[in-house]
Amino acid sequence: MDAPRQPTNVTEHHRSPIEHETTSHSTDHADERYRIVTEQLSVYFDGKPAIRDVSMVIRTNKVTAIIGPSGCGKSTFLRALNRLHEIQPNARVSGRILLDGEDIMSMDATLVRRRIGMVFQKPNPFPAMSIFDNVVAGLRFNGVRKRSVLAEIAEEALRRAALWDEVKDRLRAPATSLSGGQQQRLCIARALAIEPEVLLMDEPTSALDPIATAKIEELIYELKRSYTIVVVTHNMQQAARVSDYTAFMYLGELVEFDKTRNIFTNPSKRQTEEYITGRFG
């Protein structure tokens, strides 16, 4: 690894996201709303920082990709966005995360997670449950009991996850009987069923074959019409294909954040350039 241990210019990250924005190229999107804003977000495990002072914006109905070498903190950042870090007792957070202007740390965690859904690296359907039960789990375990409502929402969610046609005749089959790619789309449907505003995806295709990956990428493109999507990926081609904005993280810090086009054609930081050209990571 020939990259320097620390980014050369750290002051960049301490500016507010708005300032950061104006210094970049994208003044043409000034009217876009920010769904999530993080302000100097740091996450510590046992007192050691995993990410430091990440200030970033997630734009409504856009796909934001987070790239960086493994261990750079991109998953930690993502998990902090819906407070999933809290299940690790040794985790601590500083800074703020605003969802539609409201600090999520002062909200009930379960309510935050209903508004910010998540899809994981490995497809993780609930074992011992049918396809149908998986899709409606979020509804059922949050108090929705009426079968007709559940059935209606399940179909809609499966359609939106582009899985309906493949499973409509076997909704009662165990979820584990599906292929890996189908399971991942099932997990997406499961997340969509509770109608989140934001969908976080943590390397959603890293466990899938190329054909299944293509399907998911297509789906991400479809979904951004209705949802705000943040996708963590170690696959730069994927980031370039699916995202509107890209953040590059390295050693727990946000190195560069810009429109995807700019990041991949004209990065302003040497580290970003080295990473996307494959010189490290």
Partner: peptide
Amino acid sequence: TSPIAPSRSLLSKRSS
């Protein structure tokens, strides 16, 4: 932003 939005309003709002 939510074409199938009714669902969230169905969910119990009680604190966990």
